[in-house]
Design a protein around this nucleic acid. Structure first.
Length: 286
DNA sequence: CGTAGCGCCTGCCGGC
DNA sequence: TGCCGGCAGGCGCTAC
């Protein structure tokens, strides 16, 4: 479900509701996620004050005034429900947090993850950068760290397809399967192009497209394909802006050709053969 | 070392 | 209607 824009949307909602709020209660209903929820969480975080949450790649970090932080990852199917009204606990709700905000209103936050590919961690603030997952992350796509030069350096001599590279969180953090297809369509680059063949012009287009697509998706509150909802129950409106993803067989918006769907590395990839064509010698053997 | 592929989970949808 | 295979927004681990 969540790629950078959905995680950003979630983080912003969390920020609006619980910044400076006090943790009143933590209830863990099902600790099994990708890894079991850190047991210290329940007792340790109680009575902490929440500082401003932020995002790194697809991770949400919630720091507290006790130099600890909560790390949230939503996996494939995770999402948060945030409300000022009591929320009934449902299937696949793993944790429920109760906060008291500065207006002395109770805020409820539920972490729900059907497929359990997400996880929650809790540890010392100063350990964040050396956290085994965080330390691997590449540059933030919306920062100046992501530029043409950086991409060319990372792609130099590598024998991987551009689609695979966009999904590689060690290069750029936050792009997932939907936005990878979208970005490549906008860049007019074939998903199976080996990155070592990427020239400066293409890298420049790619860089601009990454920033453009992600920004636009954030503005629209993310993409709702199946059941993604923002924490306040709103769906994301980027779906109607999707150029190729989930449009197999439909007409390309730029030419009369039909959108292709291929499957490699176990993931669906959508593209327009005409708009994203390139010389056959560059094509990876399928 | 870098890369490809598997497997983790549950639910839903389309085809028979 | 019911069953079954395929598929789903992520990512760590293992084998090569």
């Amino acid at each position: 479900m969540p790629e950078l824009p959905e995680v950003e949307t979630t983080k912003n909602a969390l920020s609006n509701f619980i910044t400076e709020a006090k943790v009143i209660e933590v209830e863990i209903f099902k600790e099994e996620l990708r890894w079991p929820i850190n047991n210290n969480l329940k007792s340790d975080i109680k009575n902490s004050i929440i500082l401003n949450p932020f995002r790194l790649g697809k991770y949400i970090i919630v720091p507290t005034d006790r130099n600890k932080c909560l790390l949230l990852h939503l996996g494939m199917s995770g999402f948060l429900k945030i409300s000022k009204k009591k929320i009934k606990v449902k299937k696949h709700d793993h944790v429920k947090f109760t906060f008291l905000n500065t207006k002395h209103e109770e805020i409820y936050v539920l972490y729900n993850d059907t497929r359990r590919f997400g996880f929650i961690d809790y540890f010392d603030n100063d350990k964040l950068n050396e956290h085994f997952l965080i330390k691997k992350l590449g540059v933030e796509p919306l920062s100046l760290d992501l530029n043409t030069k950086y991409l060319l350096k990372k792609f130099n001599n590598r024998d991987v397809t551009i689609k695979t590279s966009l999904l590689d969180q060690k290069i750029v953090a936050g792009i997932g399967n939907i936005y990878a297809s979208e970005i490549l369509f906008l860049s007019k680059i074939h998903p199976l192009l080996k990155v070592k063949f990427l020239d400066k012009k293409m890298a420049n287009r790619l860089c601009k497209s990454i920033k453009y697509i992600l920004k636009k998706a954030i503005d629209k509150g993310g993409t709702t394909i199946k059941d993604f909802k923002n924490p306040d129950g709103q769906i994301g409106y980027f779906k109607q802006d999707l150029l190729v993803y989930s449009r197999k067989g439909m007409e390309c918006f730029d030419c009369e050709k039909h959108i292709k769907m291929i499957n490699f590395s176990g993931r669906a990839t959508y593209y327009c053969k005409k708009c994203q064509g390139f010389e056959k010698k560059f094509l990876k053997e399928i």
